[in-house]
Each structure stands twice: as structure tokens, then as C-alpha cells.
Design a protein around this nucleic acid. Structure first.
Lengths: 179, 179
DNA sequence: GTCTATATACGGATAGAC
DNA sequence: GTCTATCCGTATATAGAC
């Protein structure tokens, strides 16, 4: 995560793990297999952090809480590192890109889409079942928004701009799909 | 772009360029300097492809045209490769990440924000000047949306889903800010 | 299963001829 | 400015002792 796949040497990994290289090669076929195992495990851990609020009173409040939980996770140093590393290697190791996509973004979109339908069933949103996945996609994309790009490419994060972004994204959804 | 920064050897670059390694080292201080030059040049070329429609009759039509132009660009193999490579290296070479961010995402958001204000001045949008950058940010984020992630991590692109995504994002903006 | 020591190859960068 | 040939470090992976 610190160095990227190519630049991370097995010597460094072994040293950090407190074992010899030979020991690693007993447990994993090679560097790629080790990498894949790491990515698969970490993806699940990371994305399971997202909380879908259960106590729902107000639509605005529910969406805001969901938004904060999501944004907090994706701006984590761990999440940013993983995103970087997987994006870089996905071109050459498609199985890894797909595993990450399925257990990460696609899984989250699915869960959030289902959550929207729960909100609709409780009379808080006006939404057809077929629209849910697409709307979840658009909502999550807005939440990542510039903050994700800025954290990824620029120097740091801007907490104030982040709150405003969340608020506006929530407003946009409420004004079109709220009831 | 094919191999990533670390995995791309200077031998390979020299061979592809049809010169010897020594010749490259006459023109560039080292591998990093060459990489930085490539990224700076390519970022400008890529992002200058985005077209802001000049003939404006209808808000929906203008936003859709802008959306198509943007999405087409970011899903280009060139753009995807560059995104991957820069994301991967930005952690270790911050100047490169920042240069890409400034000439790419930030520049585009700025331009689109100004475009929104033009639309507002023509009476097509209800929008205050201070809201423009944030709205541009949210709109562009929705347009990238799942299609970008899917192209980045998954196997391919889905044209149908893409058109639907553009349509819904445009509708969301029109329903809240149109007049 | 774990270690040390090593095989083997390739990386970035440069010397020196032309 | 461009080449060929090479320096020197480090990479992945393995052999063989314990």
C-alpha cells in the first residue's frame, strides 16, 4: 500500500512481517498471489465499515448519516492506498480489479439501492424499484465527488468543502425523490 | 501507460522510441523527470477535448451534450491509463498528482462552473454564482459515476447503462436548477 | 515450516567512442 | 547528440540445512 505493487519488494514485505522471504514462498505461490490475497481480504474489511442508519425518522437525516459514513470510509488512508494500488494493477491483473469492484463499489451500490427501497416502502421516498441501483450509483458518485479526487491527487482534504458537498448532494436527492 | 511507472523500464521506453537509453538521458534528468514531462503534456491534451456546447437552445440539450463530451473523454483508453498511472504515483510524487489535478479535474470543474453561470445568465438555470463550482463538481461526479469505476476495475463498458446514467444526472439537475 | 545463502535476471544510469 | 558496452544495485525466486 505504501509503495505500490511493483516497488514493494518481497524483501521489504518479509522484513516488515518479521519472517524470511523463503517462509512467504511457502505460504504463497508468488508475489502476485500474495497481492491478490491481500486485496481480497482488505476490500471486504474496508467496505464493511459503511453504516446504513437503522433508526430512520427523517429522509434528510438518514441520507446525511449514510453519506458521512461512506465518505469517511473512502477518505481513509487505507482506502485511498488500496484504490490507488488496485487501479494501477487492474490493467494487468484483471481478476484483482474485478474482485475489488465486486466486493467494493458494486456491493455498496447494491446495498444502498436496497436501502433506498426501504426508505421508499416507509413512505419517505418516491422511487420505483428499477430506479434504485442507478440512483444509488449517482448518489455515491456525488459523495465521492471532488473530495476523493482531491485526496487522491492533491495534497489534502478540505473538511468544510466536504460537509457542503454532502449537504448539497442530499438536497438534490431530497428535492427530486423526497416526499 | 501500458505498464505503470515502475514496471516500465527505460530499456523498453528507449526501444519503443527507437533510440538508445543514453540518448534519453541526454534529454531528461532521469526516469522521474521523463514521467513528469509525459504526464504534464498528456493531461492538457486529454482535458482539452471536452466540448462546452456553444449553440444553446434548451438546458436539457446543452447539459446532455456537455455530459456526452465529458464521458467520452474520461472513458478513452488513454484517459483511463493516465488516471491509473497518476493515481498510483501521486502518493510518492506529489507534484505529479497536483499537476494532473490542476490541469485536469480542477480545470474542468472551473470551466463547467463558468458554463453553468452562462446558462444562468441566459435564463436557463436558477443558480447563484457561489453555487456554480460545487454544482459543477457534483454534476461531473455523477457523469463519471459507476461507468468510470467499472471501466477502471471491471472488464468493460456498458453503453446502454451509460446513456441512462447521463439522462438521469441531467434530469436531476434540470428538476432542481432548471427554469 | 523456518532459516541463510545464493542463483539468475534485470533495473536505472553512465563512460567513452564517434 | 547518438551510439555500444558496462557498472552496480536490487529484484523474484529457490536450494539446502535444520
Amino acid at each position: 500500500m505504501e509503495s505500490g505493487y511493483e516497488a514493494a519488494s518481497m524483501d521489504a514485505v518479509a522484513a516488515r512481517a518479521g519472517v524470511s522471504k523463503a517462509t512467504i514462498y511457502v505460504h504463497f505461490e508468488g508475489k502476485r498471489a500474495l497481492f491478490e490475497a491481500i486485496i481480497r481480504r482488505h476490500t471486504e474489511i474496508l467496505f464493511s465499515r459503511i453504516q446504513l442508519p437503522e433508526k430512520i425518522s427523517d429522509l434528510r437525516q438518514a441520507l446525511t448519516a449514510l453519506a458521512r459514513s461512506f465518505v469517511e470510509m473512502i477518505l481513509t488512508p487505507d482506502a485511498l492506498s488500496m484504490y490507488r494500488v488496485v487501479a494501477a494493477e487492474a490493467a494487468r491483473q484483471p481478476e484483482i480489479g474485478e474482485a475489488f469492484y465486486a466486493a467494493g463499489p458494486a456491493y455498496t451500490r447494491q446495498k444502498v439501492g436496497e436501502y433506498f427501497l426501504t426508505l421508499a416502502r416507509r413512505g419517505l421516498m418516491r422511487l420505483e424499484e428499477s430506479e434504485a441501483p442507478l440512483l444509488a450509483n449517482l448518489f455515491l458518485s456525488m459523495l465521492a465527488g471532488d473530495c476523493h479526487a482531491s485526496a487522491m491527487f492533491g495534497r489534502g482534504q478540505n473538511k468544510a468543502c466536504l460537509e457542503e458537498q454532502i449537504r448539497t448532494a442530499v438536497e438534490l436527492l431530497v428535492s427530486r425523490y423526497g416526499m
